[in-house]
């Protein structure tokens, strides 16, 4: 990142992380400046999800630190980060399948926004959720589930939003719609870090793209700069 960029809202500095004795991240540096969408791309097993887990507090790095709005938050519990405006929508579907839609939204209120407001925002953006508010979330279609997860990201008005594999197992049309919402959230000033395997979809939304390979960020640039490198990273070369 160049020098004139204001202090990043989220920053990983030299982060190492390991599962037991197996090191997955070997010194990751990554920063998300205010109001930007950063896409973290890379092949399977590169450590993208682990990097996101470190950022959200779910994993404590073995070395290095995590900064949110300039403050060192290394080792702070994920629930405390969540209550302070760092919202994470994890891989898979970030919903509770055995709770109803409304109850799922109620779980979003820990971040400080009252239920009424959460519901208002969610239903306005996704009228379909309003129709299904007393339905168990697990019985909805994959796309609807992901909308519910996104509704949380939208309604709690986070300072930083972390998105992991938003598109996993979803039809391309739905993915496109979801990324439209990501763009809308970005316009409201939220900084977003998106981890994604579906590189092409996210590149239309991202301001900055970073490619991760083998536990380190190999290249950072604008989407057009990194695009041609993707095929080698994904399908070998």
């Amino acid at each position: 990142m160049s020098d004139h960029v204001p202090e990043p809202l989220l920053e990983l500095r030299g982060v190492h992380a390991a599962y037991g004795s197996i090191e997955v991240l070997g010194g990751v540096d990554l920063s998300v400046p205010p109001g930007t969408v950063v896409a973290l791309l890379g092949p399977n097993g590169a450590g993208k999800t682990t990097a996101l887990k470190v950022a959200s507090g779910q994993m404590v790095p073995t070395k290095g630190s995590v900064f949110v709005a300039g403050r060192d938050v290394t080792g702070v519990a994920p629930e405390e980060l969540a209550r302070r405006g760092l919202t994470t929508i994890p891989e898979g579907r970030g919903i509770f399948p055995n709770l109803t839609v409304r109850e799922n939204l109620q779980m979003a209120t820990y971040a400080g926004v009252p239920l009424g407001r959460v519901e208002e925002v969610a239903y306005e953006r996704f009228p379909r959720l309003k129709e299904r508010r007393s339905q168990l979330a697990g019985t909805m279609s994959g796309g609807e589930q992901q909308m519910l997860a996104m509704a949380r990201g939208l309604a709690v008005e986070p300072k930083v939003l972390l998105l992991d594999e938003l598109s996993m197992g979803l039809a391309p049309l739905v993915v496109e719609e979801l990324y439209g919402i990501v763009a809308a959230i970005a316009r409201s000033g939220t900084s977003i870090l998106v981890v994604e395997q579906f590189a092409r979809t996210v590149l239309g939304v991202a301001d900055v793209a970073a490619i991760m390979v083998n536990g380190a960020v190999r290249r950072v640039g604008t989407p057009s700069q990194v695009e041609h490198e993707l095929s080698t990273a994904y399908l070998g070369g």
């Binding site: 629930e79 969540a82 929508i89 994890p90 055995n98 709770l99 109850e103 779980m107």
Partner: peptide, 27 residues
Amino acid sequence: FTSTRLGIAMRAVVDDRSLLQLNGGRP
């Protein structure tokens, strides 16, 4: 279990403990 946030959180923790944490709940 259906009408209080704490009760719903108790069901949520069964579904997905780490997701509850990411929501800000304290398992």
